[in-house]
């Protein structure tokens, strides 16, 4: 029984990290209908920036988190402004290639700065609690806690504020938003920044949990989170989270019940099956009239 509970904890932890990243994909897809494949690298930069920050001045976790989110958020907005906006009306494939290219550039900049994986310092005293055969660390609690908090904040923002309303409206019809005199570009930049900041937060939390920082750390997990976002219904925030937790728990479950060799095979087959029955993702809706 405690074995199962332990695995459930593992699944929640994995799911919440996937979730934070998946939100970024969905946010950006929502307002621009584009896949920002550089998102995994913004995730990596979050970890990297925090590492640099801690090397210069050791800051407490909350401050490091805020600063990292702020800086990488601005970087995300800059990326949108410099790379994506000029090609917004170009064919979709150009946007895909541009974002892949931007990702490679970011990766190689960090690779040039630090060719070897680096160790991430711990930002607080981690203590481990054992009860009834279940192990949980204060780090895990904090990581899951911060992830959930950020997710709830975003959900409230999207649903209950004017800004969230505009972001939802943008997702529906960008032209109409500017026809209402709203500076759509500013909101798009802001949404990008928000997505990048969430990715960076995920990167930081990830690096705290698995304390090796390398320039390639965002690639695999970036793809997984992207898949999670698609499974949940890309463009839909709650869908992204749902997809992330489904992916996390399928991975853990398949390891639990079968040889771990089959993990990815099982996890991704299941996801493909979901897509067969729900081609737009679990909470996604088929695209209707858009311009």
């Amino acid at each position: 029984m405690d074995y199962i509970i332990q695995q459930v904890i593992n699944a929640i932890q994995l799911g919440s990290i996937y979730g934070l990243i998946a939100l970024g994909y969905s946010l950006v897809y929502g307002v621009l209908s584009m896949m920002n494949f550089a998102h995994g690298d913004l995730f990596m930069l979050g970890a990297f920036f925090c590492l640099l920050l801690e090397k210069i001045i050791p800051l407490p976790l909350w401050l490091a988190l805020l600063l990292t989110m702020l800086v990488i958020g601005c970087l995300g907005a800059l990326l949108e402004r410099l790379a994506y906006r000029p090609i917004r009306h170009a064919p979709k494939v150009s946007a895909i290639i541009t974002s892949l290219g931007c990702g490679l550039i970011l990766e190689n900049i960090t690779l040039a700065m630090s060719p070897y994986p680096r160790h991430m310092p711990t930002l607080f005293q981690n203590s481990i609690f054992h009860f009834h055969g279940i192990t949980i660390s204060s780090l895990q609690i904090i990581v899951i806690g911060i992830s959930l908090l950020l997710m709830i904040l975003l959900d409230v923002m999207i649903r209950c504020t004017t800004l969230g309303m505009v972001i939802r409206a943008l997702a529906w019809n960008r032209l109409m938003v500017s026809l209402l005199g709203i500076p759509a570009n500013r909101i798009i930049s802001f949404t990008f920044a928000l997505g990048a900041a969430l990715g960076a937060a995920a990167g930081l939390l990830y690096a705290l949990t698995y304390p090796v920082v390398s320039s390639s750390m965002g690639i695999a997990i970036g793809w997984k989170a992207f898949i999670a976002a698609v499974i949940g219904g890309i463009g839909n925030m709650r869908g992204a989270l749902l997809g992330a937790f489904i992916l996390g728990s399928t991975e853990v479950m398949s390891i639990t019940m079968l040889p771990s060799t089959y993990r990815d095979l099982i996890a991704y087959s299941l996801l493909l099956i979901i897509l067969i029955f729900k081609p737009y993702g679990i909470l996604g809706e088929p695209p209707t009239q858009k311009i």
């Binding site: 923002m157 504020t161 004017t162 800004l163 309303m165 505009v166 939802r168 409206a169 529906w172 019809n173 109409m176 938003v177 209402l180 005199g181 709203i182 500013r186 909101i187 802001f190 209707t288």
Partner: peptide
């Protein structure tokens, strides 16, 4: 018709009022 179909009726109007609002996204956040 180009309404924001997934937004509520009230929100469709409120978003138009946005034009008169003076604050920035960060303040809104």
């Amino acid at each position: 018709i180009r309404l924001f179909k997934q937004l509520s009726v009230l929100e469709n109007i409120r978003i138009a009022y946005d034009i008169h609002l003076t604050y920035t996204p960060l303040q809104a956040l």
